[in-house]
Write a protein that binds this DNA or RNA. Sequence first.
RNA 1: GGAGACGUCGCAUAGUUCGGCCUAGUGCACCACCCUGCUAAGGUGGAGUCCUCGUAAGGGGACCGCGGGUUCAAAUCCCGCCGUCUCCGCCA
Length: 422
Amino acid sequence: MIDPVLLRENPDVIRASQVARGSDPGLVDVALQADADRRSALAAFEELRAEQNVFSKKVGQAQGDEKKALLAEVAQLAARVKEANAAATAADEAYTDAARKIQNPIIEGIPSGGEDNFVTLREVGTVPTFDFEPKDHLELGESLGAIDMTRGTKVSGARFYFLRGIGARLELALMNLALDRALEAGFVPLITPTLVRPDIMQGTGFLGEHSDEIYYLPADDLYLTGTSEVALAGYHSDEIIDLTNGPLRYAGWSTCYRREAGSSGKDTRGIIRVHQFNKLEMFVYTTPEEAEAEHDRLVAWQEGMLQSLGLAYRVIDVAAGDLGSSAARKFDIEAWVPTQDAFRELTSTSNCTTYQSRRLETRYRTESGKTAPVATLNGTLATTRWLVAILETHQQADGSVIIPEALRPYLGGMSVITPVGA
RNA sequence: GGAGACGUCGCAUAGUUCGGCCUAGUGCACCACCCUGCUAAGGUGGAGUCCUCGUAAGGGGACCGCGGGUUCAAAUCCCGCCGUCUCCGCCA
């Protein structure tokens, strides 16, 4: 939800943001009008209500004929109050609807344009080269007895898989490494619910144009979350949180569910794009002033993980047109995937400024003691997809895979994975 | 799944019988000042959240889990939902 004061006082900023995103700037004028309508309707109602309150008090004290007279007088007023109340409620809803359609104003200076207009901030690590024909992650995964796609499909359908043996262990090792890193950085670990109520899903901004990406259980009116961000954002909803000791940082682990409705035919091989995976997500509540600096810290923690795993990657500043509605700025880290001869997204970190917190009513006390919406940020610290880059990057000519040193303590010291039966 | 009890301004509670003296009282915690004087205590005052009008001072309105309804008037009556607790059943 956008800041109504910004809307009123500086609509041009929001218009410009809408244009940069390739969205409709006309929504700003609709919202402005709705805001004006809403306030005048509210004023009209409140004036009538004040009048009625005075009358009611008199009625309560009056007796006999005087009371009868007052009642006759006030009956009509009551009807008008009711009408005005309904009008004010309707106007308020109209404003909320209009305001919700407007996306989070982007942070000035981010790239404009669409998916291909990102700016590469830096490339780190050496892109691996091979003196043999590298195998892709699925071929490796199958020969290592780590990924079983065939049976995943048999049991659950396309885009489902089993992680098995060393594959299952590798994933848990990765998650544990990420969790330890998060703990070092002061994050509070949380294992989150993966089914959430509609208002929470709505509040995080996921029920907009991408609602067909989300699994829904009509019998229970619950949504399956595609990321623990949803539950983490809802964690402090409707609360006034204490930020005097610094940001609240949470590391949420959960299984994530995505319908991948709009991506049929894309990334159909292996575990790059699947309906279900695991993820350790960082989520931060902080002041709006601190948000941009925190955003940089989140990227740094992500880079630390990728570097420890020996992956080559680049950090990109995502263009306005490719941002979700909640994000004011987003950095993706893409790791090199040898058999695709391309960088593929492994992490994403968004600065949602106060957009989510306004919807979810998460506030803090400023130094002056007033309440104000907090800023929220989120970012990936590890997901199942990372296995793709790890397996492919560290493969050897004989089909074995060297385990990055950072993961070895979580695998009983194991340093290499060899093909099953080899 | 069945039965019952409950949900009040940070926490704990009063208020719900019989709708209006509730602009929701009290205790604790909190803030300021005063008194006292020091491992105490006492006094006075203040203080919730949100919206809205106003340059301001200061007004107005909403909020008693949430949403409806009845009424001139709802914390209080009615309906639905959510949640908590207790007991029973079921499962582990």
